[in-house]
Design a protein around this nucleic acid. Structure first.
Ligand SMILES: [Zn+2]
Ligand SMILES: [Zn+2]
Ligand SMILES: [Zn+2]
Ligand SMILES: [Zn+2]
Ligand SMILES: [Zn+2]
Length: 296
DNA sequence: AAGCTTACCGCCCTCTGCTGGCTTTGC
DNA sequence: AGCAAAGCCAGCAGAGGGCGGTAAGCTT
């Protein structure tokens, strides 16, 4: 009995190695070993799904697909546990993929550049960067995008009302994208090991935001002082021009008459007045009173 | 042989978050 | 006016969930 059981088991096993596939699908000519396999296959053509989920509307061709579905959606049973972290999964292949995020292994190489990915999907997605195609189109403005998620955030930010915005917990400014808030936090609110000094006084800061706020308190002071006379001013450029009165420097020379000027603006005005016959200043006029401004 | 479970390959979707060029804004 | 800074924005990669389907193995 022992040997015959072994033999029948071996026999059965040997059969799996034979490439004999007598059962052929009449719809696509694919061949199968057993009628069960053929029946399952034909059901995929006809859409016959005998295995119905008792907890939702889904139905499947095989019991295995149903069992997997129930684990994903209803029982939440995840038999495959990662030994290095809390992760667990319904399918073995998912755990295998997850392990690569620990090991850093990248088995899938791009044949056009040095990129390599940890799973096939990322490589496939990467390849569109080489083809330049943009498969996703915004249904409102027809702008095109390389990834669906990028289009989604575009539609959210550009074409919807009640756009969510993200408020910085440290300075209360609002930023449209969560990732840009991350940039803001790193740039303005991260701790600096080496303190930064205010350029107008001796105050020190370990955070760029605090430094910037502090600098604003200097704003209405005459921060810039001439070291050769008592002159002081609010703007650095005024000090630079002022210092030329000590050096006698006149760096701006008219290309037409060689007259020299201490300030660039004086030269510009001179040139327009004496050498540019068709000069017309652009003026923005107030529609109510007609008053003109040089800037919008 | 029929009807299961397990293993294995694949396809495709979403959520997430950083990067660097562009554009606006404050000074 | 002109410069620097910072938010805006699309590009693009990391990680994971869920399903489609077949082959192999086991149990009945
Ligand atoms: Zn077929
Ligand atoms: Zn269900
Ligand atoms: Zn893990
Ligand atoms: Zn590549
Ligand atoms: Zn902030």
């Amino acid at each position: 009995a022992f040997t015959s059981l072994r033999m029948s088991s071996l026999n059965r096993h040997m059969k799996t190695h034979s490439d004999e596939k007598p059962h052929v699908c009449h719809l696509c000519l694919k061949a199968f070993r057993t009628v069960t396999l053929l029946r399952n296959h034909v059901n995929t053509h006809t859409g016959t799904r005998p295995y119905k989920c008792s907890d939702c509307e889904m139905a499947f061709v095989t019991s295995g697909e149903l069992a997997r579905h129930r684990r994903y959606k209803h029982t939440l049973e995840k038999p495959f546990k990662c030994s290095m972290c809390k992760y667990s999964s319904v399918e073995a292949s998912k755990l295998k993929r997850h392990i690569r995020s620990h090991t850093g292994e990248r088995p899938y190489n791009c044949y056009l550049c040095s990129y390599a990915s940890k799973d096939t999907y990322k490589l496939k997605r990467h390849m569109v960067t080489h083809s330049g195609e943009k498969p996703y189109e915004c249904y409102v403005c027809q702008a095109r995008f390389t990834q669906s998620g990028t289009m989604k955030i575009h539609i959210l930010q550009k074409h919807s009302e009640n756009v969510p915005r993200y408020q910085c917990p440290h300075c209360n400014t609002f930023i449209a994208r969560k990732s840009d808030l991350g940039v803001h936090l790193r740039n303005l609110h991260s701790y600096l090991a080496v303190a930064m000094k205010c350029r107008y006084c001796e105050a020190l800061f370990h955070e760029r935001y605090a430094l910037i706020q502090h600098k604003k308190t200097h704003r209405n002071e005459k921060r810039f002082k001439c070291d050769q006379c008592s002159y002081a001013c609010k703007q650095e450029r005024h000090l630079i021009v002022h210092k030329r009165t000590h050096t006698g420097e006149k760096p701006f020379t008219c290309v037409c008459c060689s007259k020299c000027f201490r300030q660039k603006q004086l030269l510009t005005v001179h040139f327009r007045k004496y050498h540019d016959s068709n000069f017309k200043p652009t003026v923005y006029e107030c529609p109510k009173c007609g008053k003109g401004y040089s800037r919008w």
